[in-house]
Design a protein around this nucleic acid. Sequence first.
DNA 1: GAGTTTTGTTGTACGGCTGAACTATTGCGC
DNA 2: GCGCAATAGTTCAGCCGTACAACAAAACTC
Lengths: 409, 409
Amino acid sequence: MPATSTTTPAAAPRVPDGGAASRQHTLRERNLRLVAAAVFEASAPPSRADVAAATGLTRATVSTLVDRLVAGGLVAELPPVAAQRAGRPAVPLVPAARSVVGLGLEVNVDYLGARALDLVGDVVAERVVTGSLHDSDPREVLGRLRALAAETIAEVESGGMRVAGARLALPGLVDARGARLEVAPNLGWSSVAPVPELDLRSGGGGALDVEVANEAKLAALAELAGDVPSSFLYVSGDVGVGAGIVVDRQLFLGERGWNGEIGHVVVDPAGPRCSCGATGCLEQYAGKEVLLRGAGLPATAPVHAVVDLLRAGDDAALDTVRRAGRALGAALATFVNLVDVSTIVLGGTYAELFGWVGHVVGGVVEERALAAPFAPVDVRPAAAGPHAALTGGAREVLRSVVADPAQWV
Amino acid sequence: MPATSTTTPAAAPRVPDGGAASRQHTLRERNLRLVAAAVFEASAPPSRADVAAATGLTRATVSTLVDRLVAGGLVAELPPVAAQRAGRPAVPLVPAARSVVGLGLEVNVDYLGARALDLVGDVVAERVVTGSLHDSDPREVLGRLRALAAETIAEVESGGMRVAGARLALPGLVDARGARLEVAPNLGWSSVAPVPELDLRSGGGGALDVEVANEAKLAALAELAGDVPSSFLYVSGDVGVGAGIVVDRQLFLGERGWNGEIGHVVVDPAGPRCSCGATGCLEQYAGKEVLLRGAGLPATAPVHAVVDLLRAGDDAALDTVRRAGRALGAALATFVNLVDVSTIVLGGTYAELFGWVGHVVGGVVEERALAAPFAPVDVRPAAAGPHAALTGGAREVLRSVVADPAQWV
DNA sequence: GAGTTTTGTTGTACGGCTGAACTATTGCGC
DNA sequence: GCGCAATAGTTCAGCCGTACAACAAAACTC
C-alpha cells in the first residue's frame, strides 16, 4: 500500500467510477467492466474459465457477462481449439474486430486528418491531408476536417461498424472539460469551441460524442499500444514542445488539463527571448524551427534533412542537436524531480533524431535527477508511427468503451 | 466530462477501490463509504434524510448504514432539534468525537513529535521534543520517537479511544510503498526502514498500521482542514524545499512517490553550486540557511529573526528575501507549467515571510505561467499551524478510516 | 385537536452473485 | 472401443442488499 493511495494497483484493471449510489445494477456494470478488461488486457485470448480465475468471479457469472459482451459486439468467440490436455476445449475470447470503432481527429501545423481504429487496434479507415495551417482560419479548417471526418464515418458505417465517439487533437491549451481550445500559438487560433463547429453525426443522425485534447497528450496514449511501462512521460517535439504524463496507463491532466507545457521551462534565464515573453525557454533550444535553422536549413525543411546532415557529420547540425539535447535533458530532469517518472519517451522530432539526442538527454537527466541513484531513468524513442495523436485519440475513445461497456450492450 | 477522466468529479466523494470482483457485500461497503463521506464532508450536520438526498440512496438504506456507523463509533447522533418548519425533527449526524484517532509522527531536523487527532479534528494528545537531529543516528532517534509514540498511544487508549494507525513524516525521499526512507540529507540518514524499528503496538498488543511519507506531502494534507480549494500545490520551505501536489483532495505522488522535489529545480545554471551536484538549484536561493546567512544571521537562528530584520528595514535581509522570492517564483512557474495548479500554498519558512515574499512570488508566477492569462494563480500562506506534517499524517490515517469504514464497524 | 409535513422504520419484491449439481467435450489407459 | 478423469460451460435454488411502499413518530398550523 502506498503511503497515500492515489492510483489503483499497477496490474489490476482500472475501475474509475465516482461516488454514486450503488444498486444491484451497479454490480453488473462493474463486473462487466472487469470482465471486459480481463479479455482486452490479456496477453493471450482467455476462455470464460480463465476470465473467472483472473477476476475472482464464478464461471456462472462470467458466462452471463461474456454472453452480454458478445451480444453487444465488443467481444468475439474464436472456434474452440483443443488444447493438448484433457477436458472440453475452451472457447477463446478476443476483442471483436470491425464492430465498434473510435475516431481520432487532428489539426496540426502541417496536416489535418482522421483515423478510425477498431477494438483490435486495426486502422479501418483513414484520411490525412498535408499542408501548412500556420495562421489559418479555424472555421474554414474545421469545415475541412468535418468533411474528412464525415467521409471516414460514412466509410466505417458502410462496413457495418458503429462509431463510439471521437477525440480531436490540437496543438495548444485545451480546457479540462475537453470543450474549448484556449490558444494554439502555432495555428494562430484562440478561444475556439470546435465541437459545435464540427457537429459530427452518425449515420442514424445522432450527435457523436466529441472531445478535444492536447495533441501531445493524445500522442502519449498511442504509446500504450506497444510494450511501454504503465507510467511514463511522453515528449512531443515539433514546432512547440509538449508533453503528456501517463500514470498507471491513464493521463494525468493536472487541475485544468494544462500540464506538460515543458516547452517553456526556463533552461537559462540569460538565454534568447521566447515568444511567451520569458527568456531561455526550452523551445528556443530544442524547438523544431530552431533545430532546422541551427543546422543551416530553412524553417520549413523536413526533419529528415537534419538527419542527412548529421549522417554526413555536419558540424553545425551536430552542435545544434547536442545543444538541444542538453537543454532537453535539463528540462526533463526538472520534470523528473517535480513529477517523478522512470521512463521518458521521446516522440515527434526527437524520435527521428534519437540516435543523436538520446544519449545526451539520458546523460543529463541521470546527472540531475535526484532519484536517479535509486532508480535510473529510461529514455527511449517513441514506438507509435506517424500522426500518433490520431491513433491515441481513437484508442482513448475505445478505452472509454471498454471502461464502461454497459452503455454498448 | 474531461477529455480523459483521471479524476472523479470535483464535488463527489472519492471512492477509490480497485478492480476486484463485486459481490453483494461490495455494494454495502461502497454505500457505507458514501454515507460516511456525506456525513464527514457536509458543511452542517445532516439528518438521515439529508444523507439520502445527497447520496441518492433511499432513506431506508441510509438508515441501516448510518446505524452501522453509529454502532461502530464513527458517527454520533446529536439530540433532535426542532426546526422552525413542520414535520418530525431530524436527528443531526456528526463525526464521533474521541472514538477513533489517527496518529501523526514526525522526525525533522530540529524536533520530533507525535500528535493524535480524532474524527472531529481535535488534538487529543500530543508530544513534541525540540533539539537538533542533524547527522543523527536513526536507531537512537527512532527509539526516542517510539517512546513518545507509546506514551501518546497509552494516553489515548486510557481515554477509551482506538488508534486507527500512524503516519511517519520524514524530510527525505520515501518509496511509494511507504516503507523505506531512501535518503534524508539534512538528517544524514539513508536506507532506513523505520516501521519495524518503531514496532508500534496498540494496548491489545496488535501491531499498528504505520506508513512513512515525505514531510512536505503530509504537511500539504494538513491544509485540507481549512478552506483551501480541492487542488493546490503546497511548498514546504525549511532547510530543504519540498512540495506536495494535491489534486481533488488527494496527494498526487507520481510513479514512485518521489515527486515535488522543487528544491533542485535549476533557477540559473550559472548560479552557485548545490550539494546535489548541480548548479543554481532553488535551494541555493531560497533555502532556510541561505536566507539566514544572506540576512547576516547564523544558520541556526530562528526564521523570526529575519522577520525582525525585515520589519526594521534591513537592506541585506530585504535583498536576500526578494532574491529568494524571485527564484521561488521562477521555480513555481515551471511547476505550474508542468503540473498545472491554480493555487499555491506557501508553508514553513515562506509562511512566516509571506508578507515579504508573497507578492514577489505571485508576480513572477503570473508573468511566467503560460495559462495565467486564462486562469490566474492564487499564491497564499499556509493556514495550518506549527508541525503541520503531524496534523497531516493524523488526518491521512483518519481519511483512510472514512474511506473504508467497513473495517471499523 | 385534526390535518399536514417531514423523519425514520418495517416488510415485501426484485435483481445479481454464489455454489453445487449438471451437461458437454476432450485425452488417456487398457 | 470403452470407461474414466479432467476441464469448460450451463442451470437453478439460495442469499444478500437495495428499492418501494406503507406505516409510525413527532413536530407545526389553523
